[in-house]
Design a protein around this nucleic acid. Structure first.
Length: 445
RNA sequence: GUGGUUGUAGCUCAGUUGGUUAGAGCGCUGGAUUGUGGUUCCAGAGGUCGCGGGUUCAAAUCCCGUCUUCCACCCCA
């Protein structure tokens, strides 16, 4: 048979794993530096946990897992005969692959509420799955790096996340733009334009602005049934600078609160020297509908790619699991896209290539045994090394070392004197003959 | 989920209006080099042309299906 893997999934070669780990480590380091603690949740969640949390679209993109055993026995026969997949699914699949890390986190918080100290700051780096059509930088299996702080309404958290984001991207060597907005400003505008019940529709439409421009947004809005006058009013409001928008929204409690939120966050950041631009963009919307307050997004300024981080404040994520009134803020790094951008811009350090320092080569069976013992001595000293397990032509051995990018090769077992070895430096080909004892001294020097 | 696009050697790609035995570069293997990698030279191996079906005297080439890739929607990291 011909081997294959499912659409939208990938294998990773050693050099790719090294580069991905580089990104994960930088993010993890910053998470820890800000006092977030790691948690893990299962790959599989009950579908009751997942369905209905991501909107209709999200439900369609959930990977459902067929029940084990004789799943047809409990199947909804009527739905099956009518070919009604939607009705059949709950009777044959009770579990699914997680779609993100935020909803499982909400479930986690509710289940472990008595074991957690609030406010609780956790981070989580694990893969998630979506049955979306794959595209570049868009996969069916991908990692998310999430940090959330739950159990406090303080806007200090928002400010803290912005400094965290700034630190991560400057550590990665990427230039980005951090976009900030509040959902409350969007609501306020909707109130003022008297379309309060249609905030979501207006929001998703305006969110496309950077892609399709105002004429496109107008078309989209009109397709959704907004009048021409409403379109113009909407555009006029979003075109206002933030301070002017503030006076327009002053009469609307929600809108005014949104403006005040942004001001508070910015005042926390007054003393901070951010490496990247923080841009208030009132047209920023973010798809996920559980966001209620501040929302963040990050875009790389040097590459053409969608957002590489998303996040925001949610007032009430845990209430669906029976624990209302718990406010939180969270962000999610899009590591797959960050990886692609860093490859494109060649931002990975070369030192990731190889961690192996020595390759030991045995010239004959006795020498191989000696090499095996030598390797142990080296490892005791914390020196990474590997013994070539076969006795082969020296040419082949060196070619192997070259391919592995090992900087040092040790040839064990000279014809002249089996107690001597050759230490060869691959970079310039220099080599010296010495005893093992002498070699150890040199290495540890 | 809708519409489109792509697939030829390990990799990057040629391959004429359908016409004998499908090519190149890089990589790989062996040798020049009876212990010495990278450079050079010589030789060699490697392809059911994504898969299945159809049209034709004849298919990598045309048609249908399917898988995959990428793109635009949708949505999103």
């Amino acid at each position: 048979m011909k081997p294959s893997i499912p659409k939208g999934t990938r294998d990773f070669l050693p050099h790719e794993v090294a580069r991905r780990a580089y990104i994960f480590n930088i993010i993890q380091e910053q998470f820890e530096l800000f006092g977030f603690s790691p948690i893990e949740t299962p790959v599989l969640e009950n579908l009751s946990t997942l369905t209905g949390k991501y909107g209709e679209e999200g439900d369609r993109l959930l990977f459902k897992v067929l029940n084990s055993g004789d799943f047809l026995r409990k199947a909804d026969i009527e739905a099956l005969e009518n070919k009604n997949s939607g009705a059949l699914t709950p009777s044959i699949a009770s579990r699914g692959l997680r779609y993100d890390l935020t909803v499982p986190f909400a479930r986690f918080v509710v289940m472990h509420r008595n074991e957690l100290v609030l406010p609780f700051k956790r981070y989580q780096i694990q893969p998630v799955w979506r049955a979306d059509r794959p595209q570049k930088g868009r996969y069916r299996e991908f990692y998310q790096c999430d940090a959330d702080a739950i159990g406090s309404e303080s806007l200090l958290l928002e400010a803290e996340f912005i400094t965290l984001i700034d630190r991560v991207f400057s550590a990665l060597g990427l230039q980005v733009e951090i976009l900030l907005n509040s959902r409350k400003i969007l609501s306020g505008i909707a109130h003022v334009v008297v379309i309060a019940d249609r905030v979501m529709e207006m929001t998703t439409s305006v969110d496309k602005l950077s892609k399709i421009g105002w004429s496109g947004v107008h078309q989209d809005l009109q397709k959704r049934g907004f009048t021409q006058q409403q379109c113009q009013e909407i555009e006029a409001h979003f075109r206002l600078p933030v301070d002017e928008l503030g006076s327009v929204l002053a009469g609307d409690p929600v809108g005014a609160e949104g403006i005040a939120e942004l001001q508070t966050v910015q005042s926390y950041l007054k003393q901070e020297h951010l490496h990247n631009a923080l841009v208030v963009d009132t047209t920023l919307a973010r798809g996920l509908n559980y966001y209620t307050g501040c929302i963040f997004e990050v875009r790389a300024t040097e590459a053409q790619m969608g957002s590489i981080l998303g996040g925001g404040r949610y007032a009430d994520l845990t209430s669906v699991f029976g624990m209302p009134g718990l406010s939180g803020v969270g962000i999610s790094f899009g590591v797959e896209r960050i990886y692609d951008i860093m490859v494109e811009l060649a931002k990975f350090p070369e030192s990731l290539e190889s961690t192996l320092q020595f390759l030991l080569v045995g010239m004959d069976e006795a020498a191989l045994e000696k090499a095996f013992a030598m390797a142990s001595s080296l490892r005791k000293l914390g020196i990474t090394c590997s013994v070539h397990p076969d006795i082969q032509k020296l040419k082949k051995q060196l070619k192997y070392a070259h391919a592995l990018n090992v900087p040092n090769v040790v040839l064990v077992g000279l014809e002249e004197d089996p107690n001597l070895l050759v230490w060869k430096k691959m970079e310039d080909g220099d080599q010296q003959i010495l005893s093992f004892e002498h070699f150890l001294e040199e290495v540890t020097r």
